[in-house]
């Protein structure tokens, strides 16, 4: 038994990898669709967006890339559906250099579902380098920071941008943030200075970091990780049907998180058990 436990602790890591792969694939093939609750932070985000009157303008800063796509793309999609459904005008930009080819097609796809017109109902301003410098510049002067949209059209010729001079001119700012630059930098550079209404959808890794911002009122809502996205999907599509025939990717992934977490917990438990038994014998 002792020898077995010693060998168990020194097991080839590839067996652990195989276990992880099974824990991920099995629930995807055989989903059991367990219900989940919506937490207060996601509810607050949804409610604030839901209260927006038609015609309001919202800035969405889509700062993520394929590396964090499964966690926050579902939020980005659900949020765009929610905003377009409410006839809100959307201005999307990004501070991540690898984001434009990812976030622009999604914006156009969802705008197409609701029959929205580019330039009238929504616009994609594109990418801006400079991280905190770009955020500061967005707070001060948007037409100067983004003289054109991503297609090269001067912003003064884009109807949805008329009257927009700075970040404070938007009813809300939603930051879909996968790291730096993202929510922390928005909070630091412009949220407090201009008293902006800022919400964040972020990766699970950043979630605990942003809770103090939410508690301090610097964020009005926070959706962290895949559960945050799944909860927003649940609120946006209560009947589970996505206009245009899309899928609720985060909701579908919640089953996998169940088994994945249980697997990691089992590894920790068995690892500790074996460690303590063999240590006592030593």
């Amino acid at each position: 038994m002792f020898d077995f436990l010693v060998r168990f602790q020194a097991m080839d890591r590839r067996w652990i990898f195989l276990g992880m792969a099974i824990a991920i694939v099995l629930p995807l093939l055989f989903p059991f669709k367990m219900p989940f609750r919506v937490d207060e932070r996601v509810q607050a985000l949804f409610d604030e967006v839901d209260r927006l009157p038609a015609g309001s303008r919202v800035l969405v800063s889509a700062d993520f890339d394929p590396g964090s796509r499964p966690e926050i793309e579902p939020f980005y999609r659900a949020n765009l559906h929610h905003l377009f459904r409410k006839d809100v005008k959307i201005v999307v930009l990004t501070l991540w250099e690898s984001a434009p080819p990812l976030v622009q097609p999604i914006l156009e796809e969802i705008a197409g579902i609701y029959g929205k017109t580019y330039g009238e109902d929504y616009v994609f301003l594109g990418y801006k380098a400079g991280r905190e410098v770009a955020i500061k510049s967005i707070g001060a002067d948007i037409p100067k920071t983004f003289p054109t949209d991503s297609r090269g059209t001067p912003v003064e010729r884009i109807p949805v941008m008329r009257g927009i001079q700075k970040a404070a001119d938007f009813a809300l700012i939603v930051n879909v943030s996968s790291g730096n630059p993202g929510t922390k930098e928005y909070v630091m550079q412009i949220q407090g200075q201009y008293n902006l209404k800022l919400a964040s959808s972020t990766t699970a890794v950043s979630g605990p970091d942003y809770i103090p911002f939410y508690k301090a009122g610097q964020l009005f809502g926070l959706a962290a990780g895949m559960p945050g996205s799944a909860q927003y999907e649940k609120l946006t599509f209560p009947d589970g049907k996505v206009p245009g025939g899309g899928k609720l990717m985060a909701t579908a992934s919640m089953d996998v998180l169940n088994l994945g977490h249980l697997y990691i917990m089992a590894l920790i438990l068995f690892g500790n058990l074996a460690y303590f038994i063999t240590r006592r014998r030593d």
Binding site: V25, L28, G67, S68, P70, A204, G225, M226, S253, H261
Partner: peptide, 26 residues
């Protein structure tokens, strides 16, 4: 933080598994 990190890392692997199994397409 560790708990949330585990969740984040698994989420990323889920995304790849969904593509390999064709669950992200119609």
């Amino acid at each position: 933080s560790f708990g949330y990190t585990v969740m984040g890392r698994i989420s990323l692997a889920i995304g790849r598994a969904q593509e390999l199994l064709g669950l992200d397409r119609s």
